[in-house]
């Protein structure tokens, strides 16, 4: 555990909590892509199956349980409790164009050809592109609420901090995981355009326009 890893995890947690609270307090999921949230729920489920097979630390277990729980809670709020406010017409990204290639790639390029390892690889690849339905939705409607941009910023910052974590671990521990690093770079790059807009336009203005 180093400072980049810890702040990355906390940033990820902050993003998840911000989104849950935003939907809960406003009693609306307008502007939020339910498809992205389903993809994140799939990501956490397929990655954290090792909760059943191995114990790493109390921190690790608690965070995994919180991430999974919050992901399903978010999906529940969007598709059940506040379904009436869900903007399905604008959430029109074709997720099969992500899930099918990602599934194929995880079978082809992985650390070990075993079910658990393939599912873990699938989750890493899927996470790197899971935000695309959300970004697509914002580009389609042309605006996002300020709180939604804070969510996206924390979510992007989390993977960027993980990149620094991997540089740190490579130098001080000789640790590196090529699959996670390549997917993490892709994931961070997808946020670059958004980071730029967030800093230059989204900081104080409201509502946020692209």
């Amino acid at each position: 555990m180093n400072v980049f890893r810890l702040t990355g995890d906390l940033s990820h947690l902050a993003a998840i909590i911000i989104l849950l609270l935003k939907i809960w307090k406003s009693r609306s999921c307008a502007g939020i892509s339910g498809k992205s949230q389903i993809l994140f729920a799939i990501v956490f489920t397929t990655r954290y199956l090792d909760l059943l097979t191995s114990f790493i630390s109390l921190y690790n277990t608690c965070m995994k349980v919180i991430y999974i729980g919050c992901a399903y809670a978010t999906v529940y709020l969007i598709y059940a409790k506040f379904r009436a406010t869900y903007d399905g017409n604008h959430d029109s990204f074709r997720v099969e164009f992500l899930v099918v290639p990602v599934g194929g790639l995880s079978v082809l390029i992985n650390h070990d050809f075993s079910p658990l390892e393939i599912l873990w690889t699938f989750s890493i690849y899927l996470e790197s592109v899971a935000i695309l339905p959300q970004l697509f939705m914002i580009s389609k409607t042309g605006e996002a609420e300020t709180i939604t941009t804070h969510y996206l910023f924390c979510l992007g910052l989390y993977r960027a901090l993980y990149l620094f974590n991997w540089i740190w671990r490579f130098y001080f521990e000789g640790f590196f995981d090529m699959i996670a690093i390549v997917a993490g770079v892709v994931q961070t790059v997808l946020y670059c355009d958004f980071f730029y807009l967030y800093v230059t336009k989204g900081w104080f203005s409201r509502p946020y326009r692209l």
């Binding site: 090792d50 790493i56 690790n60 650390h111 993980y162 974590n165 640790f175 699959i179 996670a180």
Partner: peptide, 10 residues
């Protein structure tokens, strides 16, 4: 196949 690293990250 690549070497499988320890999965201690989230």
């Amino acid at each position: 196949c690549l070497r499988t690293p320890v999965k201690d990250e989230l």
